[in-house]
């Protein structure tokens, strides 16, 4: 091959500048991403709130499942079993849950992978009220929560479960919970990272000791307080 045919006018290395420019933009983005992503979320929330449900990077929920697709159940067939170390084992239908005292709360939802959705309104029954209905036996120390996806499990201590920000949720944003968010019933463990908030919940078993949940046997902290676990320092949820 002869000398570079474009050699007489080799021109400027624009390509290299574009590459370095893109890389530089990426580095700046990583360094300032926390502020930038919050800014993007705020702008989207105030101008085009629908966008966040389509593009999670714009401030919406990211949906994680550990099984194929989403499990679905007809609302009439749904039952929540409360079992184990309780005085009165219960099998609660949605109608039964509706007869228990209803609680509303609006809380930020913080994921352990970094995203947060501000001010999510939930309603349902306080976990404490469900437990009181069943009567927790004195030697019960923990809850083992199960999902009808057949795979996911979670855990809480009884002390944690009695807090007033642990909700057995049946609505979200004022409507029945969507399938992807855990229809018809999910837990909202507001002060903890999202993986504690088990979706498609169908079982609460009272146990003596904590039985680590799905992600906890895979390395995540059992006591998943936002900002004080999993090596993270997120702002507390409000």
């Amino acid at each position: 091959m002869t000398a570079d045919p474009e050699a007489p006018a080799r021109g400027t290395p624009v390509g290299r500048r574009v590459v370095l420019g893109v890389v530089g933009l990426g580095v700046v983005g990583v360094a300032t991403g926390r502020v930038l992503s919050q800014g993007v979320s705020d702008v989207v929330a105030s101008t085009a709130p629908g966008l966040a449900s389509v593009i999670p990077a714009a401030g919406g929920f990211r949906i994680y499942t550990v099984t194929d697709g989403y499990p679905e159940i007809a609302p009439a067939d749904y039952r929540l079993a409360v079992s184990g170390l309780v005085e009165r084992p219960l099998t609660l239908s949605l109608a039964d849950l509706a007869e228990l005292p209803q609680t509303q709360m609006t809380k930020d939802f913080q994921c352990v992978t970094g995203w947060r959705v501000d001010d999510v309104p939930w309603s349902g029954v306080l976990l404490r009220d469900v437990l009181d209905a069943a009567g927790v036996e004195p030697d019960a120390g923990a809850l083992r929560l199960t999902s009808f996806d057949g795979a996911y499990t979670e855990s809480l201590t009884v002390e944690q479960a009695m807090r007033d920000d642990m909700l057995v949720a049946t609505t979200m944003y004022g409507a029945p919970i969507e399938v992807k968010h855990g229809a018809p019933v999910r837990l909202v463990a507001a002060p903890m990272y999202g993986y504690k908030s088990i979706k498609w919940m169908d079982g609460i078993e009272l146990t003596r000791e904590v039985v680590p949940g799905y992600w906890e046997v895979r390395g995540y902290d059992i006591d998943a307080w936002v900002g004080q676990s999993n090596g993270r320092s997120d702002e507390p949820v409000v």
Binding site: A31, L36, S37, A57, G114, S233
Partner: peptide, 18 residues
């Protein structure tokens, strides 16, 4: 990596992917 870089990397990865 610290949280802030993890959040920043996710932010850049998401938007640049789009």
């Amino acid at each position: 990596f610290p949280d802030s870089l993890r959040t920043g990397a996710t932010f850049v990865h998401d938007w640049m992917a789009l």
